[in-house]
Design a protein around this nucleic acid. Structure first.
Lengths: 188, 188
DNA sequence: TAGCGTTGTCAACAACCGTTGGCAAACAGG
DNA sequence: CCTGTTTGCCAACGGTTGTTGACAACGCTA
């Protein structure tokens, strides 16, 4: 029936099932509450399989929290539209991919996850923001301010679930947030 | 030597020591990693004392996470200074009181802590913001936006510890954040 | 001084955690 | 068909956690 493409091992399906269950659990419960036993139960396999394929709980998290922001090339965005483009991109990127929520939840209690969050920020966001200015230190600060607003939005919307923030739709949020990001990136 | 004021029990000192240690641990480690045993060791008493005085770990957290924003009366702040006053107030309130950090960390993994965070927002911030406008629903949204920026700043500065955000001093941060809050509160 | 509530310690409990090693079944190649 | 590897399950380990109950020292009051 489902013939396997050549070069794929039979265990790849199991690996993928584990990863999917892990992302769900980490996103819903955070690092310490998400137990290997529960993840394994969701993936319908034995907990020892998780250990064989990912080595340890930390290794599993590292694999599950691989996150690509998929930022557009900011060098090609018209300068006055930077805020709007970024605001809409983040909203779209989050809704429907719980990896960011998993990383966000875990980062508050797990030092390794916080380190990875800093890495995502530096390697992806700050690197892209650096393109649109000259002074590297100043652009790093601007990127940090963008992160503060954008992560704050994710935190209040997906983690704490503040009613007024949950109640607004994507367009409303973009309309409010975009000018903030625009000023952080190109203002003053 | 240290004579006790009338009406205070001898155990009040122990209760206070437990609470202080609990706040430190919850702030540093989050809800699940902060163990009762570690908190008791910090307070130099037996873990069973914690149970006797606070009933359970959840009860202890509830007592330790009592948080008063101590917001000024926004009705008496000049309208064009709202952003600056609020930005500076939050910065001052957080540096030196780790209760907010404890609440923030715990809120990402503990449902009860998230509920309490929503309560602090609704009862203190939203209630105060409601004074400066007429339409209650609109003001609730504005208060939510303020929370998204302000909690995002706390999250990136105290939890994730993003280098550019950690590296800026209070004055710089206020200069950047105040206009954002001003627009969320009174803009458009 | 006798009695009683308070403050504190100690030892143990049941449950759960991440992790390990052994063993059976399924598979692949000769 | 035989043989070695892969995939999976099972049972158990050592450790940690929140929580409990028994019991000893202390302090107040009569």
């Amino acid at each position: 029936m489902t013939d396997t493409a050549p070069g794929t091992r039979r265990s790849d399906a199991t690996r993928a099932a584990i990863l999917r269950a892990a992302r769900e659990r980490f996103a819903a419960d955070g690092y310490e509450r998400a137990t290997i036993r529960a993840i394994a139960a969701d993936a319908r396999i034995d907990p020892s399989m998780v250990m064989r394929y990912y080595g340890s709980k930390e290794g599993l998290f590292a694999a599950a929290a691989e996150f690509d922001l998929r930022l557009p090339d900011l060098g090609e965005v018209p300068r006055e539209q930077l805020g709007e483009v970024l605001a809409r991109h983040f909203l779209n990127r989050w809704e429907g991919d719980e990896t960011l929520v998993a990383l966000l939840r875990a980062a508050s209690t797990n030092p390794g996850a916080a380190e990875r969050m800093r890495g995502v920020f530096a390697d992806q966001l700050a690197a892209e923001v650096a393109k649109i200015g000259t002074d590297p230190a100043a652009m790093a600060r601007r990127a940090g301010l963008v992160a503060s607003q954008v992560l704050g939005l994710a935190f209040t919307r997906y983690i704490v679930r503040l009613p007024p923030i949950v109640g607004m739709d994507a367009d409303e949020l973009v309309a409010w947030i975009a000018p903030t990001l625009q000023r952080y990136l190109a203002g003053r």
